[in-house]
């Protein structure tokens, strides 16, 4: 089973990171899921693949009543992001899924019907959760052609999907980045190969540099906090992406 770890808490406003599953088979990529709770409402960010549904669901259940989750946010269309949607809908048929308009008619192959989806327009939108305003920030072509990150201005947290992702060896897979230089070696090949557009990358760096960010939370690997946030953005802006050989 995975573990649900609080990364931000202010009264009825919380962020939980659902991470690291010791029972996960090697052939499945490790993922992080995040739950943002505000008052009586909660949204699950990148709910994960159907294979990890039991681990994610059970980890959340240890600290939070999953019946209160009625929204999910999918940064993009990948199976490790959203193929568990059918299970979440089994559990609660009222769940709404926020995803780029581009994928609206693709995701029903994983589960859900027309009314399940709330399409996000290319320039992003606000998503209100229990009175808290979250912003879907465009991150197209990083790596998916219809791609969004989610920014919480109050918590100063940016959920960054596959951007910032690292494939960490056992023993170096802490919740937070501790040694940036050491950590980023495990992110480099991934970003070079998966991130398709240099222009999109520069746009993204400019866009997020203007935001106040205490933590960047990726869907794989460790969380960047404090000075490592700017370090990551600088590193990414200098990286050559969209190339086949590293």
């Amino acid at each position: 089973m995975k573990t649900a770890r609080p990364i931000y808490e202010d009264d009825n406003h919380k962020w939980l990171a659902i991470v690291r599953d010791p029972d996960r088979p090697d052939y499945l990529i490790d993922t992080n899921e995040y739950l943002v709770v505000s008052n009586d409402d909660a949204i699950l960010l990148d709910p994960g693949g159907s294979e990890v549904f039991p681990a994610v669901f059970s980890a959340i259940s240890t600290v939070f009543d999953p019946r209160r989750i009625n929204k999910v946010f999918a940064s993009h269309q990948d199976p490790d992001i959203i193929s568990s949607l059918s299970m979440w809908l089994e559990f609660n048929p009222q769940v709404k899924c926020y995803i780029s308009w581009l994928w609206q008619s693709f995701i029903p192959h994983f589960g859900g019907q027309g009314e399940t989806f709330i399409p996000i327009p290319d320039n992003g939108m606000d998503i209100v959760v229990g009175g808290l305003r979250l912003q879907a920030i465009p991150a197209h072509y990083l790596h998916s052609s219809g791609n969004f990150h989610l920014y919480d201005a109050k918590a100063k947290i940016l959920f960054s999907g596959d951007v910032g992702a690292a494939l960490l060896p056992p023993g170096e897979d802490g919740l937070f980045v501790e040694d940036f230089d050491r950590h980023i070696r495990h992110a480099e090949a991934f970003h070079r190969r998966w991130m398709g557009s240099d222009k999109a990358k520069r746009d993204w760096c400019a866009r997020v540099s203007a935001l106040e960010i205490d933590m960047i939370c990726p869907q794989h690997g460790s969380i960047y906090r404090g000075a490592d946030v700017k370090r990551f953005i600088d590193w990414f802006s200098r990286l050559d992406v969209g190339i086949l050989k590293s």
């Binding site: 159907s50 039991p54 669901f57 059970s58 299970m87």
Partner: peptide
């Protein structure tokens, strides 16, 4: 007890996949 309920979630998930 909690571990057992985790087992139940896994089994239900597997069964939903099978039924699909």
């Amino acid at each position: 007890l909690r571990e057992t309920t985790y087992g139940s979630v896994s089994t239900v998930t597997a069964q939903v996949k099978q039924s699909r």
